[in-house]
Simulated scan of single mutants.
Amino acid sequence: MSNLFKKIFSQNLKPEPQKGPQGKPHRGKYMPDEKSPADERFTKHFILNGGKFLYCVDMNEVQESFDNILLENDWYENEVFCIDDNLAASFKGYNLNFGKSQEASFLLSTCENLVADDGSLLICSNQIKEKKLKELPQDFVIFATTSQIVNNIGEGLRGIKSKNTKSIPTNITTIKNFEPDGVSKDFMSYGSSAKNLYLLLLEDL
């Protein structure tokens, strides 16, 4: 897995739309092959969507990358929107104030799945309760693992259902656009504002 990500990040991942001989769309140089592994497809789509990707081989690298995010954005000692007590405990060494205010500097959360087909993140009430995306801070920091990568949204939804047999989570939605001033047009998050998103991805396979 680590060799895959080194290969991906050694490339310049800017899309270059081209036309084939009959005017049909031609797959760009940096677009993932339709039959390529799910992790490769997710990574390339996510970056092309504008997401900020930080691949980590262990929790020490996760903490280092998180520290760099705080430094880059001057978020030390700021308020953070986070409803996951376990996650807050994992990042407690930065003098952050964990709460649920919409005025927080950024949201810190996990997600349900990472969707390979379009580079989106699948979230639900487990992460954001019943809040709409537009009611949350503009900046997201998401912690996820490579085992959470699925091929498509349908696979992710089936996984949510199988893990929550007694009570299926509500407010299931996707985050797909990570460009400033962008607007998501995905049917599961239609009309919601795009988010500036950092992904801390931990290798666990």
Results as ranks from 00 to 15, higher is better:
E16L: 14
F187E: 08
L48H: 07
I142F: 06
I128F: 07
F5M: 15
Q127P: 08
G93E: 14
T165I: 07
N49S: 06
E64A: 11
N78M: 15
M59F: 11
K24H: 14
N152T: 12
N171P: 00
I175N: 15
K14R: 15
I175L: 14
L157F: 04
K176M: 06
N152A: 12
K161T: 10
I47C: 09
Y55H: 05
S120I: 13
V62K: 12
L133R: 10
F140Q: 09
F140I: 10
E179I: 11
N3D: 03
K161R: 10
I172P: 10
N60D: 01
G28S: 05
I149R: 00
R27M: 10
F5N: 12
F143G: 00
A104I: 08
E61N: 02
N164R: 02
M31H: 05
E72A: 15
S10R: 04
L70S: 13
N95A: 02
K163S: 05
G23D: 07
L108A: 04
F9R: 09
E79H: 05
K129R: 12
P15T: 13
G51I: 04
A116F: 01
K185H: 10
N86D: 13
L96G: 00
Q63G: 01
L197H: 13
V115T: 03
R41S: 04
K134R: 10
N152V: 13
G154F: 04
P180L: 08
Y94T: 14
N49L: 06
P17F: 07
R27G: 07
Q127E: 09
P180R: 08
I47Q: 05
N60W: 01
N152M: 12
D33K: 15
F98S: 03
F42G: 05
F66N: 01
Q11S: 03
N78D: 11
R41C: 03
A38R: 07
G93M: 15
F91G: 01
Y94I: 12
F143N: 01
E64K: 13
G50I: 07
D67P: 11
G93R: 13
E34W: 14
G51L: 08
I149S: 00
I8A: 06
K161H: 11
D85E: 12
L122D: 06
F46S: 01
L199P: 00
I153E: 00
E203W: 08
D74Q: 10
K44Y: 04
L136D: 02
Y30R: 09
D33Y: 12
F5Q: 13
C82F: 10
Y30A: 04
Q18E: 14
I172F: 08
N78R: 12
L107M: 04
E135A: 08
I123V: 06
K52V: 10
